[in-house]
Amino acid sequence: MTDEPTLGEVVRRFEDRLTDVRDDIQQLGRRLDEKVDAKVYDLRHEALAARVTTLETIREKDADKIVATRRWLIGAVVVPLVAVLMPVIILLVQGAGS
């Protein structure tokens, strides 16, 4: 008979287990509150994909602007500079050969 728990000890053990179960249920509730709904996840994913697409488009436009700026620089600065210096160089070469 000494191996059998008393009624008070059985009640204490039961209350301990009940407290453990309540804590577990509260933890599950908190985890469910933190879980993202699939629809919200899909919406965020679509928004992120749209943002990436927009950024890629802007990057391509910027690359086109850089190419256009280089072409303008060559056309507006380098070509006229060469056109001005070429006759001078030709005259110097012809003068040195005379």
Rank of each mutant, 00 (worst) to 15 (best):
M1T: 15
M1H: 13
M1F: 15
E4D: 08
E4H: 09
P5L: 02
G8C: 06
V11L: 07
V11N: 04
R12H: 09
F14D: 08
E15V: 14
E15C: 15
D16C: 06
R17T: 11
T19H: 04
V21D: 00
R22Q: 03
D23A: 10
D24H: 11
I25T: 12
I25N: 02
Q27H: 15
L28G: 11
L28K: 12
R30K: 12
R31V: 10
R31N: 12
D33M: 06
D33G: 01
E34K: 09
V36F: 07
V36S: 04
K39L: 03
K39I: 11
Y41M: 15
D42V: 07
L43R: 00
L43I: 01
R44I: 05
R44A: 06
E46L: 06
E46I: 02
A47Y: 02
A47H: 02
L48V: 01
A49F: 02
A50R: 07
A50E: 05
R51Y: 04
V52A: 02
T53Q: 11
T54I: 11
L55K: 02
L55P: 00
E56A: 09
I58K: 05
K61I: 08
K61R: 10
D62R: 13
A63L: 04
K65F: 15
K65R: 12
I66V: 13
V67T: 11
A68E: 10
A68Y: 11
T69C: 10
R70D: 12
R70W: 08
W72H: 13
L73M: 08
L73A: 15
L73D: 02
I74W: 06
I74T: 04
G75K: 06
G75T: 04
A76D: 13
V77G: 04
V78F: 15
V78R: 05
P80F: 10
L81T: 13
L81Y: 06
V82N: 04
V84C: 05
V84Q: 03
L85R: 01
L85W: 02
P87S: 03
L91G: 10
L92R: 12
G95A: 09
A96S: 13
G97P: 00
